[in-house]
Design a protein around this nucleic acid. Structure first.
Length: 259
DNA sequence: CGGGGTTCCTGGCCGC
DNA sequence: TGCGGCCAGGAACCCC
């Protein structure tokens, strides 16, 4: 647990994706929360003796292969992209083989430098998110339904796997550009189902993802659609096809998910 | 501003 | 066995 600790120094890989990590130096970690795929460390810093202080946020996106660790001594690891030394001597560090992750230090709640976080949609289990809200959000754009899901705007946290799974369950063609209220309702329901089932099974490990205890998830064995291109649809038996939509690999059933 | 396309990065896998 | 080539994936970024 690093909440309450003060960062006394920071080092980062020179890539602009990580270089801001050292801007957290001198700040105390006040709390840690998650929004969508972003980890947000609230930071405070006493700047004068009259009680003045400044607030920032350390934002970490793990990307595909990223992970955070806390250790008593800093390991020598070629994939270490950033590290922060804490006042109690421990080290928080970020390992990311493929460098798809991202680190930013921003003024508190000012996400203008991170457009996706800036315009991030509601959390999937937010009770205020109902079919009407979801539908009206989807209606604001004419992009393909799958592209909209991946944009993080209608709902926070949906990636390629869960988008394919939920669209398959809801029997919606990923290239659909307009959905009615009824289909939006169905999609929302299936998105929530797909996410909660995956969480129940420890998440989806394709290659790198690990739970905090180091174990892999088990949800990858339960996928119905993603990664099953060429195999028979579990519902109707016809072949699942792989197609690229907006540069993203997409698997769908030709029969169940017609336009 | 919205939408579409490009780019980053590297281990693993495929085929020769 | 070795090696070149290709692929995957999230979001910033660039351009119209």
């Amino acid at each position: 647990m690093v909440v309450g600790s003060t960062i006394i120094s920071g080092r980062a890989h020179p890539s602009p994706k990580f270089a801001e990590a050292s801007d957290a130096t001198g700040y105390r970690i006040r709390c840690l929360e998650r929004r969508g795929k972003y980890l947000l460390f609230a930071l405070t810093n006493s700047v004068d003796d009259k009680g003045g202080y400044s607030e920032r946020q350390l934002v970490v996106h793990l990307g595909m292969t990223g992970a955070l660790y806390v250790n008593d001594s800093l390991p020598d690891d070629p994939y270490q992209r950033a590290s922060w030394t804490l006042a109690d001597g421990r080290h928080l560090w970020f390992r990311d083989v493929r460098r798809f992750g991202r680190i930013a230090v921003v003024p508190a709640n000012d996400y203008r430098s991170l457009p996706t976080l800036h315009r991030l949609g509601p959390e999937p289990f937010d009770p205020a998110l109902d079919a009407a809200v979801f539908h009206s959000s989807l209606t604001k754009s004419r992009r393909r339904i799958k592209t909209q899901l991946l944009s993080q705007r209608p709902i926070a946290g949906i990636g390629n796997i869960y988008a394919d799974e939920a669209l398959w369950r809801a029997r919606i063609h990923p290239g659909t550009r307009r959905v009615g209220l009824e289909r939006a309702d169905r999609l929302l329901e299936h998105l929530r189902e797909v996410l909660s089932e995956s969480l129940q099974h420890g998440g989806t490990t394709l290659r790198d993802y690990r739970k905090p205890d180091g174990d892999t998830g088990r949800n990858q064995k339960r996928l119905d659609c993603y990664g099953r291109g060429g195999l028979p649809c579990r519902r109707c038996g016809s072949q699942l096809v792989v197609q690229i939509f907006d540069q993203r690999t997409t698997t769908r059933c030709v029969i169940c998910q017609r336009r």
